[in-house]
């Protein structure tokens, strides 16, 4: 009854696909166009598409006065540091949760999950006080640290699912060969879960890169990140749409590039270990 690969079916599927892509990708393209539009065409309907590209907004945001170029560097520092700090905490925990049986494991897994559900706004003022008390307010480290409350739980869940899929027999074989626990961990298991490390790092990077709430109070002029920069163009007396769009395009690029480059790991990484066997 299902007309396999008939022409009608193909056309229907491609038409649906085109609709889906238009819906999800169209707005992004529309926003990118805003960043290179002459301002006079930004709110003209029907849409003006044959305009001369104007790179003024990129000049203003990135070069002169160029507030956002430094912020882009800050965002990179924060996001990369968040990834580096995240792995040594989450990978061992994920390994233990995958390989050992112990009481309260379910509770622990759910506890990690519950951390992702706290209202972030509620924690801003306490985090500022905490970071000030330990002398870290305004530093990159303060932002990197609190972002771990988002990245570590997510990473543990992801990594556990990857480790789950490494057959225990491989470890057994290595152990019988006389390898120590550390050797097994670093030379046997980690190489096998490399795709998992990549996906976990991708998500940690994007979480940290996109986070606007924590830098709102924890950053200072030297450490402010891109989302804060974007917000500053939305002022009482005016909105510089071109600047917002230009800064936003710069803010969109790294996560997009990462996801497109490592695309083959993405699908594999998002099963949370639930589809094994």
């Amino acid at each position: 009854m299902i007309g396999q690969n008939t022409a009608t079916r193909k056309i229907t599927l491609y038409a649906l696909l085109a609709l889906v892509m238009l819906f999800f990708i169209g707005p992004i393209i529309w926003f990118i166009l805003l960043s290179i539009r002459p301002p006079s065409t930004a709110f003209t309907m029907p849409p003006v598409l044959n305009f001369t590209p104007d790179l003024g907004a990129f000049t203003r945001t990135m070069v002169d006065p160029g507030d956002n170029s430094g912020q882009a560097v800050n965002s990179l520092i924060v996001a990369i540091s968040a990834v580096l700090l995240n792995l040594p905490f989450s990978v061992p925990a994920a390994y233990a949760l995958s390989r050992f049986k112990f009481r309260r494991k379910k509770f622990l897994m759910l506890w990690y999950l519950s951390l992702l559900m706290a209202p972030p706004v509620a924690f801003l003022i306490p985090y500022f006080i905490l970071m000030t008390n330990v002398g870290l307010s305004g530093t990159y480290l303060s932002m990197v640290l609190v972002m771990q409350t988002l990245t570590i739980p997510f990473s543990i869940w992801l990594m556990k699912s990857f480790i789950d899929e490494v057959p225990r027999e491989i470890e057994e074989a290595a152990r019988i060969d006389g390898a120590s626990g550390w050797t097994i961990m670093f030379r046997v298991v980690l190489p096998l879960v490399m795709p998992g490390l990549i996906v976990t790092s991708m998500f940690a990077f994007v979480f940290a890169w996109n986070n606007a709430a924590f830098p709102l109070v924890l950053s200072s002029q030297r450490t402010a990140t891109l989302p804060i920069g974007t917000l500053s163009y939305f002022t009482n007396t005016g909105v510089t749409w071109g600047n917002i769009a230009a800064a936003a395009v710069v803010a969109m690029l790294p996560p997009m590039i990462i996801f497109l480059v490592f695309d083959r790991f993405v699908v594999r990484g998002l099963t949370f270990g639930a589809v094994k066997g």
Binding site: L17, P27, T230, M252
Partner: peptide
């Protein structure tokens, strides 16, 4: 298509807010 489809999810929520504020603008939003 699948590879491209993930893109909206990778955008910062603040940026999504601005994107839709622009789209919803009563004076000339798409």
């Amino acid at each position: 298509s699948r590879a491209l489809l993930i893109l909206p999810t990778t955008i910062a929520p603040v940026v999504v807010g601005f994107l839709f504020r622009y789209m919803y603008d009563p004076a000339g939003g798409l």
